[in-house]
């Protein structure tokens, strides 16, 4: 039956091609055995940092949050050394609690946008150049290609892409959230959609934005962060706020 199901999948994914994470409990246990909560805390924001890649196993209940936390605690002398890692597990628990208590929040704005724009001023569809990884912003196109080719993105790259789609292209977060759900092997409606809302500012106090310096700081040499290839990102945060949110009062002080 499994072979028949796999054979029936569309041919745009090669079942034999190398992928970032294999399915199954055995693969999950191998990944769990290698986690390093201390290294995670120090480097998790970097694309080449000591991230655990446990997310697809947690998403599908192949591992429970409880057993991953217990494993992390067993690897450190003091629980506080594992706090950053456990806090990330807590984010997942938090999103799941919201999903259960307020399922309507998964696809609807929890709050209004704090961008100076009304929801009706955002496009409802992803632009074709985004879907086709030809936005002309080099690092963004690389992240899109990574998403499509591997089904996995580092969390920081997800935030960059989400912010670019919502704030630079003024597209509703729902369109981007559905796109990620379709491609990410760890996509969970609660973690994914509510994180998009956090970036959009419909579930946070202010919109999340980034600039090229931030991308350069957290990515390696394989990501193109040349200014000439990423002009729309090569600004200070103050300049970006004025460009992206012209209806907002400038921040003082």
């Amino acid at each position: 039956m499994i072979a028949a199901l796999v054979a029936a999948l569309p041919a745009d994914v090669d079942a034999a091609a190398p992928r970032p994470m294999a399915g199954g409990r055995k693969a999950a246990e191998r990944a769990l055995a290698t986690i390093d909560p201390v290294a995670y805390a120090a480097s998790r924001n970097h694309l080449d940092g000591a991230v655990t890649r446990l997310s697809p196993y947690l998403r599908h209940g192949i591992l429970s949050l409880d057993e991953v936390r217990n494993h992390a605690l067993a690897k450190v002398a003091d629980p506080r050394q594992a706090e950053k890692f456990i806090q990330e597990l807590a984010w997942r628990d938090y999103w799941q609690r919201i999903y259960l208590a307020h399922p309507d929040r998964i696809w609807n704005d929890v709050e209004v946008y704090k961008t100076g724009f009304d929801a009706s001023e955002y496009d409802t569809e992803l632009p074709a150049d985004v879907v086709e990884a030809r936005t002309g912003v080099a690092c963004i196109d690389q992240f899109i290609a990574m998403l499509h080719e591997t089904g996995y993105l580092h969390n920081h790259a997800r935030m960059y892409l989400a912010a670019y789609v919502v704030h630079w292209r003024r597209v509703r977060w729902q369109a981007g959230a559905a796109w990620f759900l379709e491609h990410l092997i760890d996509a969970d409606p609660a973690s994914n959609n509510l994180s998009w809302q956090w970036v959009a500012s419909t579930f946070s106090k202010k919109p999340y934005i980034f600039n090229l310096d931030n991308v350069a700081k957290y990515t390696g040499h394989d990501i193109n962060t040349r200014m000439s290839d990423n002009r729309v990102l090569a600004c200070s945060y103050e300049q970006l706020s004025e460009l992206l949110f012209p209806n907002l009062e400038p921040a003082h002080g």
């Binding site: 994914v13 294999a22 199954g24 693969a27 599908h60 089904g151 491609h183 990410l184």
Partner: peptide, 25 residues
């Protein structure tokens, strides 16, 4: 309906292969 793409379906199928369940389509 849940936007579960092909890669995720493959991941789920791999996981099912280890579980020794009755699988119905």
């Amino acid at each position: 309906a849940g936007h579960v793409g092909v890669r995720r379906q493959l991941f789920i199928a791999e996981t099912l292969a280890e579980l020794e369940l009755e699988i119905h389509d």
